[in-house]
């Protein structure tokens, strides 16, 4: 097919535009990496913008020898693992009966769930609830209040609905009970959607910081995101910087901030390109109205 001249010019500009978009999307991350390998002196003078200057790995050593950083990292791993397990289990548990026409009051239960997407209790009542349940300064304050996301629940319900009913009927005739059907037929057939759910929830849990800030006062319970927030806000002092003058402190902070950010965001950036299709498929299922 012959392309018109105008369209070919458009193609060139489009390609250029895409390259600019790539640069804009990647530059902030690249800048962090450049800063994390640069020496404090050059960052302070504003000479680091693309390539690291005064290349060194001292900052990485300093951050990695910080005890609170590892405590935070460990906590984040625990909260993400346990939280995601609870999320997916609870969501599947609710989504399965919701996907069944034979459930008495199916429509009611769906409305019961969906209503919470549009109206919620708000910050203060939630805070008072968690307090009055004595969950403050426990892991439960992090993993229980957000156990089910109604949006994800609807995605999972739609996906369960797409499984042919005949499979379950055949198993039922063979004498399998509902639990058997759920674990031996539904779950194995739903591996892709479960993977999507694990990813959605896990990213959310990994990134979460607000509930930790509300409910965890004890340093030994705090996730790495909260540690990082402290660094950015200047509230957290690394043991190195305590003795420095205020100017040197600002330099060190910039260095240390970048390095800590790189180390926190690294797991997501490494894993994400390989799992991208699951995220996208989740959005697609969600886009089909439930």
């Amino acid at each position: 097919m012959k392309l018109s001249k105008g369209y070919r010019i458009f193609q060139v500009f489009n390609l250029l535009f895409m390259l600019i978009i790539i640069a804009i999307m990647l530059y902030p991350f690249w800048y962090l990496v450049a800063q994390s390998f640069s020496s404090q002196k050059y960052i302070y003078m504003g000479e680091v913008s693309i390539l690291p200057k005064g290349f060194n790995v001292q900052t990485y050593k300093a951050v990695m020898s910080e005890r609170q950083f590892w405590i935070g990292y460990k906590n984040t791993l625990i909260y993400t693992a346990l939280g995601t397990f609870i999320n997916v289990a609870m969501t599947a548990m609710f989504a399965y009966p919701l996907s069944k026409k034979r459930l008495i009051g199916q429509k009611f239960w769906i409305k019961f769930a969906v209503f919470t997407m549009y109206f919620s209790g708000g910050l203060i009542p939630n805070y008072l609830l968690v307090n009055s349940l004595h969950m403050k300064n426990t892991i439960w304050a992090i993993v229980i209040p957000g156990a089910i996301s109604t949006f994800n629940l609807m995605i999972m319900k739609n996906s369960f609905e797409a499984i042919p009913q005949e499979l379950e009927e055949a198993a039922s005739i063979d004498g399998m009970n509902t639990y058997g059907i759920f674990f031996k037929i539904i779950i194995p057939l739903s591996v892709p959607i479960i993977a999507t759910m694990i990813l959605f929830y896990a990213v959310g849990n990994w990134n979460s910081w607000f509930s930790a800030m509300l409910y965890l006062d004890e340093k030994k319970l705090q996730p790495v995101s909260l540690y990082l927030r402290g660094l950015i806000a200047g509230a957290t002092q690394t043991s190195d910087s305590v003795t420095m003058s205020s100017d040197a402190q600002a330099q060190i902070a910039s260095n240390i901030k970048s390095t800590t950010m790189v180390l926190t965001v690294l797991p997501i950036i490494c894993v994400y390109p390989f799992l991208q299709k699951y995220f996208v498929s989740g959005i697609m299922i969600g886009a089909v109205k439930g």
């Binding site: 902030p28 991350f29 800048y31 962090l32 800063q35 990213v203 990994w206 990134n207 979460s208 910081w209 995101s225 990082l228 927030r229 950015i232 910039s254 901030k257 970048s258 950010m261 926190t264 965001v265 997501i268 994400y272």
Partner: peptide, 13 residues
């Protein structure tokens, strides 16, 4: 996929 904390950190830097 970037957390709000990282996003704001990036903005500050």
């Amino acid at each position: 996929f970037i957390s709000t904390v990282i996003l704001v950190g990036l903005i500050f830097e």
